[in-house]
Design a protein around this nucleic acid. Structure first.
Length: 114
DNA sequence: GGTTTGACCCTAA
DNA sequence: ATTAGGGCCAAAC
């Protein structure tokens, strides 16, 4: 378990129920402004090894983009989100701006306009 | 060690 | 709405 992995999990665990964040947002919060892909890579690598609300992380368009691994898939992510009261429109689309979790002042205005 | 791929993001057309 | 291209970084060949 690397430091970065721990920090990702740490932050993901602070996301309140019924809220979501984007991969890029996690990256910025962790201090790697252009490391969205890296975050995705790390989350994929965990594969449920550590318990954390991984389903509250989606892409910046509000879409579920995970391909799925042995433990979790897009269908499960969707049902988990719905179970928390988040509305999922169309197959896998979410009104992210409505549910986005915004921690104090850790987000770059460039990434999150308005 | 170069190339490809990916649970990403942005801009432009 | 869709496509194309660039940037990003780590893993896997």
């Amino acid at each position: 378990m690397t430091e970065l992995q721990k920090r990702v999990i740490d932050f993901v665990r602070t996301i309140p129920q019924g809220k979501v964040v984007s991969y890029g947002q996690v990256a910025v919060t962790l201090g790697i402004p252009r490391g969205a892909r890296q975050v995705g890579w790390i989350l994929r690598g965990l594969e449920g090894a550590v318990e954390h609300p991984w389903w509250r992380v989606i892409n910046n368009e509000g879409r579920i983009t995970i391909k799925g691994n042995k433990h979790h898939g897009p269908l499960e992510q969707r049902s988990r989100l719905v179970a928390e009261g988040i509305e999922v429109t169309d197959g896998f689309k979410i009104a992210i701006e409505k549910y986005r979790y915004r921690p104090k002042s850790s987000i770059s205005p460039q990434l999150l306009p308005m």
